[in-house]
């Protein structure tokens, strides 16, 4: 991929030098500029001049030269691996094994695994519900009632950019028996609870990591809401609650759906949080996959479970698209 992108730079660099006439002042400036702008040495220009002219006469190829390398890399290293996973999920035991359906029948026919899928779904739904409610309340409070919107939003986003594992570790410090929470409870004379390795710990951990992510689309859709609509609703006699339910919420439903998708999908596939904060009874589907690749070494079986997750995710995305989440498009509202 390095070759592809640098080759493109070369043709482009030659383009500039060949395009400008050598005796104009602009050209001198252009060459001077190239040293700061990470361009190739102008010396290669003459050699590549025919190529440059060719690109100027063929704008489609020029487009290909700019869009092609990133396109190729995303296809080869992102799309193709996912397709390869689909194929491998139909093979026995190892990559290149005989074709079979046994990975799927083995997974879907096992009550243990289906219980894990169902539990994963329940946990993801709970996390999504909590994050949506809290995140929306926060976004609403910031947009409608705060002056320092930018600063508050920054305070919400910043934790999202620290390491996921570190954020989980912070909660281990707090939730473990004898940890910060227990000490605080004991200090005010309450019984200690030692929440680590429980469902509650997993819910707290997930809520903590996804809250900043969900606030962004909520915030964006609330900011884009025309305040005149709210005024109109109030002028027509609706109180704040009715205005919220019949104007604000329906008008920001795209942001809500986007936020829900952004929380549910990664939660459904997660293995870090349940592994670190959950107990042995809190197995989630992501942990089963991790096992196949880190201890059981049955890659095709792991690929089949990956496909099961993918099917759930695609179903959810289709549902979200029907409900009107603007997830794709020009950057959309995706975090």
């Amino acid at each position: 991929m390095t070759d592809a992108s640098s080759a493109d730079d070369d043709t482009g660099g030659a383009d500039s030098t060949a395009g400008a006439q050598p005796d104009t002042p602009e050209n001198v400036a252009a060459d001077g500029g190239s040293t700061t702008a990470a361009g190739p040495a102008p010396g290669s220009a003459g050699r590549l001049a025919p190529v440059t002219g060719f690109f100027r006469d063929h704008p489609r190829l020029r487009t290909l030269a700019v869009a092609g390398p990133p396109y190729g890399i995303l296809v080869l290293f992102f799309a193709v691996p996912l397709l390869a996973m689909l194929l491998i999920s139909f093979q026995t035991g190892q990559i290149g094994g005989a074709w079979t359906l046994s990975n799927y029948t083995g997974f879907l026919g096992s009550e243990t695994y289906l219980t894990v899928v169902w539990r994963t779904f329940l946990i993801s739904a709970q996390v999504t519900g909590i994050v949506a409610a809290v995140g929306y309340a926060l976004a609403y409070s910031i947009v409608r009632f705060s002056r320092r919107t930018t600063l508050l939003l920054l305070c919400v986003i910043l934790p999202f950019w620290t390491s996921y594992i570190i954020r989980m570790y912070a909660w281990i410090n707090i939730l473990q028996s004898g940890g910060v929470l227990d000490s605080a409870l004991a200090a005010v004379g309450l019984p200690t609870i030692g929440l680590l390795y429980t469902d509650t710990a997993v819910l707290i951990g997930f809520t903590y990591v996804w809250l900043p992510l969900a606030v962004l689309p909520f915030y964006a859709s609330l900011t884009n809401l025309d305040p005149d609509l709210i005024e109109a609703s109030k002028d027509l006699g609706a109180g704040p609650v009715r205005t919220f339910l019949s104007v604000t919420l329906p008008m920001t439903i795209n942001g809500v759906v986007t936020g829900i998708v952004l929380v549910f999908i990664p939660t459904f596939g997660s293995f870090i949080t349940p592994r670190l904060l959950g107990g042995t009874s809190n197995v989630m589907i992501g942990m089963v996959i991790e096992n196949q690749f880190k201890s059981a070494f049955n890659w095709p079986f792991g690929a089949a479970i990956g496909m099961v997750i993918t099917v759930v995710v695609v179903a959810l995305l289709l549902l979200a698209a029907r409900l009107g989440g603007g997830l794709f498009g020009t950057g959309g509202e995706t975090a």
Binding site: P70, A79, M85, S270, I289, A303, G306, I309, V313, F328
Partner: peptide, 23 residues
Amino acid sequence: LQLLATLPIIVPLVVTGIAMVLF
């Protein structure tokens, strides 16, 4: 191209992760 440049956010990390190790 835009879709491809957005999808890695949406596909669960563990799914892309194992697809990558396989490929």
